[in-house]
Design a protein around this nucleic acid. Structure first.
Length: 309
DNA sequence: GCGTCCAGGTCTACC
DNA sequence: GGTAGACCTGGACGC
């Protein structure tokens, strides 16, 4: 096993742990938080298929990475590994305009002060979309089971030395790997139920080049058109597409689900139910940032106690 | 241990 | 454009 160590510097307004805990993604493999060691881990798969297990630790200027691989890494592989981690942690996102808006509004002045607002994402849009479909119409516990099954049964195993003796890590399946599964396998082994044909169709379209999800992160399409494209993936309704938009850096949609609706009723209506249009109206003044203001408003309590551990 | 009911978004058919 | 019903699973609950 070969070890590579390097540091990643981040903008001054970056908060390592607030990015990691920005939403549920950090607890879905191949991401992993080790609360005892205070590390954030991720098994990356590089374009050439090389697996690299990265352990990240917060530093005063960003984070430090200790990466393990089966073979020594070349310069281009090291660059790709760094680029993937930067993409996950949203280091390329310019948060200054959003923070300037947040500073103008008293209820949101805590956001720039704490460095909140960067939302963790996967190295690929494909992984984000597959995981998002796995969150639809089910409990979080089932999402965790489904994603765990996807990695252990269709991903690649890292650390062959232990070979099933515990401690092995698995990568997230590539589009080709997922496309090679049958619907029956997905239903029975992955437990993805009626979502199985949606996942298969998506994987087949990406693997064949019919759909290029990765272009969404750099797309110049107007937000409304990009949303329509995201929404055109079978299994992606308003909730799922709205949340994917946030991971693409577009914050015009709220991505409402039952949990955030309940949060809104509690925080703003004394528990009284209201329609989605009322919620939309509440955040409309925030313009193109409304989806991010909304999410931070709903999750503010996460930041109230000592953070992160 | 077994059966029943419910919650959770999206799709499709229908009005 | 709006709505009802089906889709599938895990968990809660009653027996």
């Amino acid at each position: 096993m070969y070890t590579t160590k390097f540091s990643v510097s981040a903008p001054r307004n970056f908060s390592f742990w607030r990015t990691v805990f920005s939403h549920g993604w950090c607890s879905l493999p191949p991401f992993k938080v080790d609360k005892e060691r205070h590390t954030f881990e991720r098994l990356l798969e590089l374009r050439d298929g090389t697996l690299v297990h990265c352990v990240m630790r917060e530093t005063s200027t960003g984070f430090r990475v200790q990466a393990q691989s089966g073979k020594p890494l070349g310069d281009s592989q090291k660059k790709e590994m760094r680029d993937q981690l930067r993409a996950c942690m949203r280091l390329g996102d310019d948060m200054a305009p959003f923070y300037a808006e947040a500073r103008k509004q008293k209820p949101f002045r805590w956001v720039p002060r704490l460095g909140a607002g960067r939302m963790l994402r996967a190295p690929t849009v494909f992984e984000d979309v597959v995981k998002m479909i796995c969150t639809t119409n089910c409990s979080w516990a089932l999402t965790e089971i489904t994603v765990e099954n996807l990695t252990t049964k269709l991903g690649k195993q890292f650390n062959p030395a232990v070979d099933g003796a515990g401690g092995a890590e698995y990568s997230f399946p590539t589009p080709t790997a997922l496309a090679s599964a049958t619907e029956k396998f997905l239903r029975k082994e992955i437990r993805s139920g009626y979502r199985s044909p949606y996942l298969l169709e998506l994987a087949e379209n990406v693997a064949s080049g019919k759909r290029n999800l990765e272009s969404w992160r750099t797309s110049t399409l107007p937000t409304e058109e990009l949303f329509k494209e995201v929404r055109s993936v079978k299994g992606m309704g308003d909730y799922a597409a709205g949340n994917i938009m946030r991971l693409l850096g577009r914050y015009d949609y709220l991505g409402l689900d039952s949990w955030v609706r309940a949060q809104y009723y509690t925080l703003h209506k004394q528990g009284r139910k209201v329609g989605d249009k009322t919620i939309e109206r509440h955040y409309a003044p925030h313009g193109k940032w409304k989806g991010l203001f909304f999410w931070l408003d709903m999750t503010k309590s996460w930041y109230n106690h000592q953070f992160p551990f």
